[in-house]
């Protein structure tokens, strides 16, 4: 692949507590669930076998698997940061499953900004994955963003990377 346009990165000085990230809405289909599960090499049947999910797990349909939800959160965050954004950690709780037919909406708010003792700029973000009025999953993300145009969080290694 070539000639990809690099989005303008979010720079640390421009990030403030209370900032909202652009929402991401996705209509979940059976393909969304199955493709996500197989992409993450998750062969468990509740993510591709309707009868197993409904009759064994007792849920209404096949549902998004854990690593795929993580990947959706990653996409949501780096859509905002651009490629220089580097995930430090994410912690998410799946309160209820996400099923085909759901329209999942990811939204996020910056809850903290700080620089660590190496000078790395961090944004903490609370992300909600909602389906209708229901919050299906919540995710706390800590992502490094460049402190200026010349900074690159990906260049940090060893003791200079403190996720």
């Amino acid at each position: 692949m070539s000639n990809v346009t690099i989005p303008t990165p979010v720079l640390f000085p421009s990030v403030s507590v209370g900032d909202s990230l652009p929402e991401l809405a996705v209509d979940v289909t059976p393909t969304t669930v199955v493709l996500g599960a197989l992409a993450s090499r998750d062969w468990r049947p509740m993510h591709h076998d309707y009868k197993f999910a409904t009759e064994r797990n007792g849920v209404q349909d096949i549902f998004l698997n854990t690593p795929n939800q993580a990947a959706w959160f990653e996409r949501f965050i780096t859509d905002w940061t651009g490629p220089k954004g580097r995930l430090g950690r994410m912690k998410f709780r799946m309160k209820t499953s996400v099923f085909p037919g759901d329209r999942m909406v990811l939204s996020g708010t910056v809850t903290a900004v700080d620089t660590d003792d190496t000078g790395c700029g961090w944004a903490s973000i609370d992300v909600a994955l909602t389906v209708g009025e229901t919050v299906a999953s919540t995710c706390e993300v800590r992502v490094a963003v460049p402190v200026d145009e010349n900074d690159n969080p990906w260049s940090r290694t060893g003791d200079r990377w403190k996720p």
């Binding site: 692949m1 990809v4 493709l35 996500g36 992409a39 990653e74 996409r75 780096t78 490629p83």
Partner: peptide, 19 residues
């Protein structure tokens, strides 16, 4: 790439060698 396709993730860092 399967994960990127499954989540329609166009982050050029993950697609473009130069980036």
């Amino acid at each position: 790439y399967n994960t990127l396709a499954a989540t329609q993730n166009g982050n050029p860092l993950l697609w473009d060698d130069e980036v």
